[in-house]
Amino acid sequence: MPATIFYQSFYGSTGDYARALAQRLGTTAQEIPADASQCEIGGTDPLILLSPVHGPSMAAADFLKHNDLGDRPVAVCAVGMTLAEEARSKDRCASLLGRKAATVTRFYLPGRLNYSTLSGKHRNIMRAIVGSLRLKPNKSANEHAMIADYDRDIDRVDLAELDPVVDWALSATRG
């Protein structure tokens, strides 16, 4: 089944999901280039973009903001460390997509965060976030998890979470 898959991955989990999804759909996954105009995005087959959410930015949302895909079926898979229930209920990806959110199907996939491989800059950002969370009263379950997981390698990647994405791609093809 034809599908076009693009991804961005910093620490590996998004790349793992993209390659597994491509294998299941019988296609290949390509990295999102720094210059979105270099992407070959023609066609009418389903387009699936996977990228991590890093603070206020997400490569998949940025890509879609700068490309007009017409009526083509599009899905974004946000990969992150926010607990799945909270990520799905808050749906931050919708706000990052702006007006395109109404036409883009959104999925959340739990990721991996290995403190042992973080860049110094990312480690400092996490230290500041967790430090401020420790002082916050009335923490959410997700905030408690961030504090508990701080400075530990955490892997929540679950390839079974791709099942709804595959189902969406198959239904979008039949369309």
Rank of each mutant, 00 (worst) to 15 (best):
A78D: 02
A29M: 05
M81T: 03
G175V: 03
T28S: 11
Y115Q: 09
W168K: 08
G15R: 08
T117H: 11
V79S: 02
A60Y: 04
V74H: 06
S95H: 11
G12R: 02
Q38W: 01
E31R: 15
L162I: 09
I32Y: 04
Y108E: 14
L97M: 06
E161N: 13
P52A: 08
I5N: 07
R88Q: 13
S51A: 15
T44G: 14
S37Y: 10
V74T: 12
W168D: 10
Y115R: 10
D151W: 08
I125W: 12
R112I: 04
S119C: 13
S171W: 00
L50K: 10
A102Y: 01
Y17M: 04
V130M: 13
Y7N: 09
K100R: 14
R127Q: 15
Q23E: 14
P137F: 07
I5E: 05
D91S: 04
D68P: 02
C77M: 05
D153A: 09
R156M: 11
C39E: 09
A59E: 03
R112G: 03
P73E: 06
G15A: 12
G131S: 12
A60V: 03
D71H: 11
T103V: 10
H122D: 15
P137E: 15
G15Y: 00
S13K: 05
A60D: 02
T4S: 11
H66L: 10
T103Q: 13
V79L: 00
A20C: 07
Y11R: 11
L133N: 13
A148D: 15
L113W: 08
A36W: 12
G98Y: 01
R92N: 10
P52V: 06
R72L: 05
V166E: 12
R106D: 00
G70M: 09
G111L: 09
V166R: 08
A60I: 03
D71Q: 12
R156Y: 10
I48K: 10
V130C: 12
S51G: 14
V165E: 06
S119D: 15
G70R: 08
N67P: 00
C77D: 10
G111I: 05
P110W: 03
G42H: 15
H144F: 07
A169Y: 03
A145Y: 04
Q30S: 11
A20I: 00
T14D: 02
R174V: 07
L69S: 08
A94D: 08
P73R: 04
I5Q: 04
K65I: 00
D62W: 09
I48V: 14
L135T: 12
Q8P: 02
R112F: 09
V53Y: 01
L25D: 03
L25M: 06
V104Q: 10
G70L: 11
M1T: 11
I5F: 02
A78N: 02
K136Y: 08
H66N: 13
